[in-house]
């Protein structure tokens, strides 16, 4: 294990998060069991105040989790300089068996916390706070995912071995290896790219007919195909190298850190598309606003990745 300043910072914040989220967890359970907005008891009076604290804590954690997620990726990137064989975050993340799970948990938790916050906003808009029990239950479940993430993260950093040789992204994301991702390469490029654009068109249709279900479904498809097509097709145009398929090298300064923008747009867009629409349906709120946000960021993503391909073609006159 190595203790670089970045790792210490992340572990320290993890400790803080664990402490505060445990408080929020206990309060959430209490809220879930005994919340009764009709009651005029002392307990209910107290619970109303405690629900503020839960909201405060989760807002605090979420506000930090977003930059911390980027910081985590950045840390893995810097660690790739001292871990033999790793050339970007991909190698570092994959140096431990559960590295990919950690990353997935991190993403999932961002979506879960964001979902909770949207629900919270809808909840406090009304004086009756109609969704307190739902959101408490939701956090009660999300808490376990959060703890799992923190435990994985601590295990990840303690089991990092700088003298162990890891694979670099060139081998991890290539068709030839027996990696878990190699099955993706069996698909044809044109197929995956057209699926990607098709899901985007479906999303546009869903937006035009203002159908939440279609929009939600197309967003799920879009998220999946966006990531797969980024690995298979679009990344090669960013690197201008037909053999390089890494989704992490995008984040490096050699490519102007374009990955941060791409991922931010993609995740914001699909977050509003998925969570926003779910919330709007559940609480009968303004579905249009969430859709507009979502469509804006998703279109931004599509424009950015397509621009790489188009510019490459205009410059060189050939496709990769």
């Amino acid at each position: 294990m190595t203790l670089t300043p970045e790792i210490i910072a992340i572990l320290m914040l993890d400790g803080l998060f664990l402490f505060f989220s445990s408080i929020a967890f206990v309060l959430s359970l209490k809220l879930y069991w005994s919340w009764d907005s009709e009651a005029t008891t002392l307990l209910q009076y107290r619970l109303e105040k405690e629900s503020y604290l839960v909201g405060l804590i989760i807002k605090y954690i979420f506000m930090l989790k977003v930059p911390l997620f980027l910081f985590f990726i950045y840390t893995c990137d810097t660690l790739s300089g001292i871990i033999t064989g790793a050339m970007c975050a991909a190698g570092v993340v994959n140096s431990v068996d559960f590295g990919l799970f950690l990353l997935l948990f991190k993403l999932l938790n961002l979506y879960l916390f964001g979902f909770w916050l949207l629900l919270h906003v809808r909840d406090v808009e009304s004086e009756l706070q109609p969704y307190v029990r739902q959101k408490s239950l939701f956090f009660g479940i999300a808490f376990f995912f959060f703890v799992a993430e923190i435990v994985l993260e601590i295990l990840f950093f303690t089991s990092l071995n700088i003298s162990k040789i890891v694979s670099c992204c060139g081998t991890l994301f290539s068709a030839s290896t027996q990696s878990s991702l190699s099955f993706l390469f069996l698909m044809e490029n044109w197929m995956i790219v057209s699926l990607f654009y098709a899901s985007f068109i479906l999303m546009l249709v869903g937006f035009m007919v203002k159908n939440g279900a279609v929009y939600l479904f197309s967003n799920l498809l879009f998220l999946f195909f966006a990531i797969v097509s980024l690995i298979l097709f679009f990344s090669t145009y960013v690197y201008e190298l037909p053999t390089h398929h890494c989704p992490f090298c995008l984040l490096q300064s050699d490519y102007y850190g374009v990955g941060y923008f791409l991922y931010a747009a993609l995740f914001l867009g699909t977050f509003y598309g998925i969570c926003g629409v779910v919330i709007a349906t559940l609480t009968k709120g303004f579905i249009l606003r969430a859709m507009r946000f979502s469509l804006f960021f998703n279109s931004l993503y599509v424009v950015m990745v397509s621009a790489y391909v188009v510019v490459y073609f205009l410059k060189n006159g050939v496709w990769l």
Partner: peptide
């Protein structure tokens, strides 16, 4: 890199 990460890590 390791030495300096170690030194600042120790202080940290």
């Amino acid at each position: 890199q390791n030495i300096f990460d170690y030194k600042s890590g120790f202080f940290l």
